[in-house]
Every structure is written in C-alpha cells, then in structure tokens.
C-alpha cells in the first residue's frame, strides 16, 4: 500500500492522526498532513483505509 497526501487540499482537521497515529502526523506550522509512513506496514492498512474514509477534505488516497 502506498499513501498519497495532498497538502493543498488538506484542511488540518486531524482525523487521520486520530485514526492512524503511527502513519500520520500534522505539520507544526499549518496543521496539514505529514506522512510518517508513506508505505505503511500491513498491520496499519485497515487503520489507513479508515483514515482515508473519514478525511473530511478528500486529501488522502491509497494505491
């Protein structure tokens, strides 16, 4: 799994950090998404899919 995060679209709601804290973080500066693990380990995949689903701005996708 590979995650794509679009920081231009991100609104910094923090739902991804709440859902998969090992994979996502937020920039100290503007609160937008930071990828800690762009290719998450298998045990994180379910949480990442949930994070993509709850993201309010559609900034996240996986391939």
């Amino acid at each position: 799994m590979r995650i794509k995060a679009d920081t231009d679209v991100c609104i910094g709601a923090g739902m991804c950090v709440l859902t998969a804290p090992k994979v996502f973080d937020q920039s100290e500066e503007d609160g937008t998404v930071l990828l800690l693990e762009p290719e998450p380990s298998a045990d994180q995949e379910a949480a990442v899919r949930r994070a993509v689903q709850v993201c309010p701005s559609g900034a996240l996708s996986v391939s």
Binding site: G12, G14, P21, Q26, S27, E28, D30, G31, T32
Partner: peptide
C-alpha cells in the same frame, strides 16, 4: 483563514 488557524488546533 483556515490555514492560519489549523496549526493552532492540531491533535498534538
């Protein structure tokens, strides 16, 4: 506006 504020309301 939102960009100026989101950094103040992060999870951390």
């Amino acid at each position: 506006f939102r960009r100026l504020l989101t950094g103040q309301f992060t999870v951390r």
